[in-house]
Design a protein around this nucleic acid. Structure first.
Lengths: 395, 395
DNA sequence: TGCGATATGTTGCTGAAGTCAACAATTCGC
DNA sequence: GCGAATTGTTGACTTCAGCAACATATCGCA
C-alpha cells in the first residue's frame, strides 16, 4: 500500500508531499486567477520569496506556467514578474446530451481552445456514444496545435456517476443505466478519463472562473431541458459525498400535492419547476429555448406571470432547505433557473428571506451564473486537468 | 500576516507544518481509537517506522500520549508498544439547557472525568448563565486531579452560533439573541472558549466515538424537547458552511399543509415530528421522556401507531432530501428520533427506499445513535480539545 | 529446547526542501 | 539625483522524513 492510497485525513506528510503540495497550490492559484505576480503568490501562500522563486522556476521548466515581464506597476519597489498558465497542457471536455455530443479542448486558466459539436439526432446507446466520443476526441486532438499536451478527458454527464470507478449509474435523459462509458472511452483513446455529474461540474466551473470566485461555500442549481441538477462547493472543495452523487437538488421535496416524478418519489422540485411549462406558455418550441428569457422578461400574459411566481415559490422552498442545511455564502442559478430569477429577483429574494433561518440567510447572496455556454466544457476540463493541478511534477 | 491565518487550500507547507501535521495525525488516531500500536500507526499513516518512533517519543515527552507495553500478541515478530491517550489534557464541556447547565471535564479518548449538573429552574439570561458557567467551571477544575491540564472550554449550544466569533445568534429555547456568551465565559475563566451547535457537536461525537466511527460522510439528526437539530460530517471533517450554521435539518420543508413554525416558515420538519405529541399520546409528562421509548415499543393504541407512522413519514422526506443532496454513507438518528426509528425501522427504511434516488440510497445505512447521555459532553470537549489535536506541539 | 522466519524497534547517515540573511536590482517620490 | 521601499537572487543553515543495517522479540516447528 502506498502512501497515496490512504485516506487524506489520516495520511502522513512526507517531505516529497510538501513540494508537491506547494507546487500544486501555486499552479492552482495561477490557473484560477489567470495570472499572478510572484510577490502576490508569496503573500498568498505565506511561503518564502526564495521558495516561490524555486517553485516558479520548476513550473516554468515543466511547461506549466510562463513567466512574463512585470505588467502595470503597482508602486515602489522592484517589479515582480507575472506567472500565467502556459498554453501547453489541455484537458479534453466531453458532454453527451440527448441529441449531440460536444467535445472541446480546454487549457489552463479555463481557456477553450477548440470546441466541436457532433449531432446525433437522438439518444445513442452508451456503446455508440463512446465510439463517437473516441472519434471526436481524435479529431479534436488533430485540430489543436502540436504544442498542446492532452493530459486527460473529463466527462460532464447528465446523470449520476459513481466516483470510485466512473460507472454511469443512471442518466435518465440518455436512458443509460450502469454503463461503463468511462472505461470504453479510456480504452478507445488511451487517455485517463474521469466523469462527473454535469451540474456538479457546472458548480465547479462557476466556482473556479465564474460567479463563485473567491467563495468557499457555494451552491449551484441548474435548470435544463432534462430537469434540475446541482452542485455544492464546501470549504473551497467540490462536494460529492461518499460516492460522488451529492448535489441532487432536483429531487428535493417541495410539494405535498405534487405528482410522481420519474425518480419514483412525489413532489420533487423538478416536477414543479419545468422549462417546458414556461416554453409552452410563451409559445416557443424546445429548440428555441435561448429566447425563453427574453419572452419571460417581456411577459404580458397573466398565466405566464402566475406560472413564473408559482415556480419561483417552489424554487424558494428548495433554496430554503439548502440555506438551512448548507449555510452557503452564495447560491448560483444557472440555465432557465437564472432566467426565472432574472424575471423577478425581488420576489424570490423575498420568499427566501421569509422562509430561511435568519442567521444563515443574512450572509447568503443569490445570483445567476456568470459563465455562458462553455460552462460544462470548462467544468469537465477541470476534472481532466485536476491530476496536473494536484501533482504538477507528474506532467 | 502569518502563515496560519491563510485559508487552508491556498496555504503553503513549510517543513514545520509537516511535523505539526504528522504529530496531529498520530495524536488524532490515538485519540479516536483509544489505543493503537506503533506498527498500526505506521501502516495507517504510510510514514516510516523511524518517523513514527520520533513522533511517538515527542508526544510522550509532551505528556499527550503514554506508551504501554505490548498488549495481546498479534503474531510473529517483535511486539509493538501501544500508544494510549494520556490522562493529562482535558477539555471542559458546557451545555446550557432550559432548566440546567451541565459542565464536564473530558480527557483525550472521549473519557468523561467528571460531570456536574447545575439546575437553574428555568431559562437564565445569557449574562447569568455565563456567571454560573464560570463558577461551575471553577468547581469542576477544583474537583479534578492536579495531573489534568485544562486546555480549553467547548460549549454545546442549543442554537445557532457564529463560527467566526462564537456569538450566539439565536437560541430560541433559552430565548437568547446575539449573546456574547462565549466572550463572557472566556473573560471569566481566562480559558479559550469555543461554542458550536449542540446537534453538530452530537454529530462530531458520534463520528469520533459512536455509530459513525470509520465513516467519512455522515448525517446526524437529533430529536430533543426543543426540536430537531442536525449535523453533517463530510470527507471526515465536520461541516459547518460559511458561518458554521450548517446542518439545520429541523426546518426542512416536509408538508405543504403544515402550520407556521417559530422560525417563520411553514411545513418545517420540527413542527410535524414532535416529542411532545408522542408523550401526550402515551400519557407521559415531559419530565418522564426517558420512558417514552418503552411506551412506544409496547404501543397498543391505534392513535399512537398512526402518529408514529405519520411522524416517520415526515422524517423520511427529510432523510430523502439529505440523501439526495449529501449522499452520506450513514445516517444516525439520536434522541427521540432514535426511539421513533426503533419502533418501526422497516417502515422508515421502506419509505426512504421508495423516495430517495436509487444510487445514493443503495449505499446509505440508517442507524440510531450509539452514545448515551454523555454525547454532548464528548462533542463539546472535542471542540475544546481541537487545538491540541491539530497542533500538539503547542500543548 | 533451539533455531529459523518474521515483524518491528533503534541508530546513524543522506537528501530534499523551506528559511534566513545579505546583497542586488528596480521603481517611486521628492 | 538620491533615499526609501519592494522584490529578486544567492548561499549557508536547519529540520525532517527516508533508508539501510542491525538489534530485539515472538511464533512455529523439529
Amino acid at each position: 500500500m502506498t502512501n497515496a492510497d490512504l485516506p487524506r485525513r489520516s495520511r502522513g506528510n512526507s517531505n516529497d508531499s510538501v513540494r508537491q503540495h506547494n507546487l500544486s497550490v501555486v499552479l492552482r492559484s495561477v490557473h484560477h486567477s489567470g495570472g499572478l505576480s510572484r510577490s502576490a503568490i508569496t503573500a498568498g501562500t505565506g511561503l518564502n520569496r526564495s521558495t516561490i522563486a524555486a517553485i516558479a522556476a520548476e513550473l516554468v521548466e515543466r511547461g506549466l506556467v510562463v513567466e512574463v515581464g512585470p505588467g502595470a506597476s503597482t508602486g515602489v519597489g522592484r517589479p515582480s514578474p507575472v506567472l500565467r498558465p502556459s498554453d501547453g497542457p489541455v484537458g479534453i471536455a466531453v458532454n453527451p446530451e440527448i441529441d449531440a455530443i460536444t467535445v472541446a479542448a480546454v487549457g489552463l486558466g479555463g481557456r477553450v481552445v477548440t470546441r466541436r459539436r457532433y449531432d446525433t439526432g437522438g439518444p445513442l446507446s452508451a456503446t455508440d456514444a463512446a465510439a463517437l466520443t473516441v472519434t471526436a476526441i481524435a479529431e479534436v486532438r488533430a485540430a489543436i496545435d502540436a504544442q498542446h499536451r492532452v493530459v486527460g478527458v473529463g466527462v460532464a454527464m447528465p446523470g449520476l456517476v459513481r466516483a470510485g470507478d466512473g460507472l454511469v449509474r443512471l442518466a435518465p435523459h440518455l436512458r443509460w443505466t450502469d454503463e461503463p462509458f468511462v472505461d470504453a472511452v479510456a480504452a478507445g483513446t488511451g487517455l485517463p478519463v474521469v466523469a462527473g455529474n454535469d451540474a456538479s461540474l457546472g458548480a465547479l466551473a462557476e466556482f473556479s472562473f465564474g460567479a463563485g470566485r473567491g467563495e468557499t461555500d457555494m451552491v449551484y442549481l441548474n435548470g435544463g431541458a432534462s430537469g434540475i441538477g446541482g452542485g455544492v462547493i464546501t470549504g473551497g472543495v467540490p462536494f460529492g459525498g461518499v460516492d460522488g452523487y451529492g448535489g441532487e437538488f432536483g429531487h428535493t421535496f417541495v410539494n405535498s400535492a405534487g405528482v410522481q416524478c420519474h425518480c419514483g418519489a412525489t413532489g420533487c422540485l423538478e416536477t414543479e419547476v419545468r422549462r417546458s411549462t414556461l416554453l409552452r406558455l410563451v409559445g416557443l418550441s424546445d429548440a428555441a429555448a435561448t429566447q425563453l428569457e427574453a419572452a419571460m422578461l417581456s411577459a404580458t400574459s397573466d398565466d405566464l406571470t402566475t406560472e413564473i411566481h408559482r415556480q419561483l415559490g417552489f424554487l424558494a422552498i428548495a433554496l430554503r432547505n439548502a440555506i438551512n442545511v448548507l449555510n452557503p455564502g452564495l447560491i448560483v442559478l444557472g440555465g432557465f433557473l437564472g432566467s426565472l430569477y432574472a424575471t423577478d429577483p425581488d420576489y424570490l429574494d423575498g420568499l427566501v428571506s421569509r422562509q430561511a433561518l435568519r442567521a444563515p440567510r443574512e450572509t447568503v447572496r443569490i445570483t445567476r451564473a456568470a459563465l455562458g455556454p462553455d460552462i460544462l466544457m470548462i467544468g469537465a476540463a477541470e476534472l481532466a486537468l485536476e491530476p496536473v493541478l494536484s501533482d504538477p511534477l507528474r506532467y
